[in-house]
Amino acid sequence: MIQGNMNDDAIPGLPEEDSPLWTRVLKHSAILFSLLGVWEFLTAFGYADPLLFPRPSAIFSSFVPLYVTRGIVWEHLWVTMSTVLAGFVVGTLLGIFLAVLAGLSETIHRYMKPYVIILEATPRIAIGPLMLAWLGFGFGAKLAIVTLVCFFAPFINTLTAILSANPAQVELMRSLGASKWQTLTKTIVPDAMPMIMAGIRMAMASALGGALVAEFISSNTGMAVLLKNLAAMLNMSSAFATLLSLTVIGYILYAMMEGIERRVIFWQNDAGLRRVSAQRKLHWEARA
């Protein structure tokens, strides 16, 4: 039942379009702007309550006080991002480290399994209030929640990948006289890398959510607090602007992970493979 998950969160089945870029951009923005236009007019003519569904123009104009004139967003943004990144790094490293330990010993794995299954079924974020009681209202509780949220996907994916290592390859390494360490670093880990990276990507995706939940329940700074206060004051246009900022942050984190994945598992895309082969060729020629 412990099973890794590749969870490809890109939209499948989108072939390359041969029409030039500008026509595509034009079509997409035509659709976007007509949707926004409909919304604008619905609110402007009173079909939707402007208090709850602010006009798109109001949302975009409220970016200005948030970011420029009053600049209230920066402090919250900084707090949230530091929680996200710290928790992500700690949780992912911990998950991978423990998974490697568990993956190398059959016994540890067997006796750990029931607890992992139970922990997997528990809504991890739900432990938030408990963390708050344990660690107080500071950075510690938030870090612990994000760490916990980030821990599982890398842990389970690494474990699955290591357990499904190709026995023939391991046997080959053994018969070539490789040490255990060499077998681990030269075959098992590279073989497991796509799965591990998928886990890390999932962890990154959940880190932002985890940090926001932690802020909802325990904090007085951070993007979630800002959003909550704005929505509570029924300043919906600014609330939407904050939400859109979170979308952008989420996209940046996602794109960052894609980039890292592309570099780490370079052998899975043509460009990366060509680049690394060229580098290695240069390196070997220089040595020769």
């Binding site: 939209i11 709850l52 932002l208 926001l212 959003l227 929505a231 609330a239 939400l243 989420g250």
Partner: peptide, 19 residues
Amino acid sequence: AVALNVTPGIAVTPIFIAW
């Protein structure tokens, strides 16, 4: 769909509560 995926859904909570 991509925009929806990268937005942490949890962040929408305050807006949904207002709605």
